[in-house]
């Protein structure tokens, strides 16, 4: 028997909203420690890795590990039927899981809706992501990163990210001209969510697709801060951390001529 009840159902709505553009079908791997998902986009350029800890649900029950093969478009359609204040419960019979039950209860509990989503068999290749000691780790307000991606998209569909000890610089060059945004570390004690920090092993400069980065910023509502990890000739890691877990996006770099 699998049951996971999340009081802040809106979180699940936002999480699914932040992956729906990237992947269409994915396996939710459920175990007694929690729920995780790893999926690449069709072009194998980007990957999303989601992890929700069992402690974040109440109750959480997963008698034995199993996978829920889900078409994310269909799941998103059903999630649209949940109110933002609803408590969401996921249930499945973990022996013969051929469907996932979703229960939406409103706060005063006089409205309960129940949906069943047909599950699919998805054989997905799994990537092993090595623990990396990154050359640069940048923390910044997630809204700031979203704005930089959106602004520089008007100039080009590629962005070069340069990180040095006291600056992170985003540069775009295109037909119309060029644009760049430079951020300096700040540490506003009273507003930690506004702070910008740079942890530098060595300077790094990499080029990425802004189309994918903009797509990743769908995770902005999940966290005030976003973490960017860069290492030379390694995929970029973009992480939005939540109390209940994290959503991580990996993006392979572009190599110039």
């Amino acid at each position: 028997m699998f049951e996971a009840r999340l009081t802040q159902g809106a979180l699940l709505k936002r999480l699914l909203d932040s992956v729906k553009e990237l992947v269409t079908d994915a396996n939710f791997d459920c175990s007694e420690t929690g729920i995780s998902l790893q999926a690449m986009d069709n072009s194998h350029v980007a990957l999303v890795s989601l992890s929700l800890r069992a402690e974040g649900f109440n109750p959480y029950r997963c008698d034995r590990g199993f996978s829920l093969g889900v078409n994310l478009n269909s799941l998103n359609k059903i999630m649209k039927c949940a109110g933002n204040e609803d408590v969401i419960t996921l249930k499945a019979d973990d022996s013969s899981a051929d469907s996932l039950c979703l229960l939406f209860e409103n706060s005063s509990n006089e409205r309960v809706s129940e949906y069943e989503l047909k599950l699919m068999d998805i054989d997905q290749e799994h990537l092993s992501i090595p623990e990396t000691d990154y050359d640069a780790t940048v923390m910044m307000p997630s809204a700031e990163f979203q704005r930089i991606c959106r602004d520089l998209m008007v100039v080009s569909e590629s962005v070069t990210i340069d990180v040095s000890k006291d600056e992170i610089k985003f540069t775009a060059e295109g037909e119309l001209g060029t644009g760049n945004v430079k951020l300096k570390p700040t540490s506003t004690i009273d507003k930690p969510e506004e702070s910008i920090t740079i942890e530098l092993g060595q300077t790094v400069s990499l080029q990425f697709s802004l189309k994918y980065l903009s797509n990743f910023t769908r995770g902005t509502p999940l966290s005030d801060q976003v973490m960017l990890c860069l290492s030379d000739n390694m995929p970029l890691l973009v992480e939005y951390k939540m109390d209940i877990g994290y959503i991580r996006y990996y993006l392979a770099p572009k190599v110039g001529d």
Partner: peptide
């Protein structure tokens, strides 16, 4: 010209 790398170049499929 920029070439977009693939993740499978960096991460091993298991």
């Amino acid at each position: 010209l920029e070439i977009q790398e693939l993740l499978t170049t960096f991460f091993v499929q298991v």
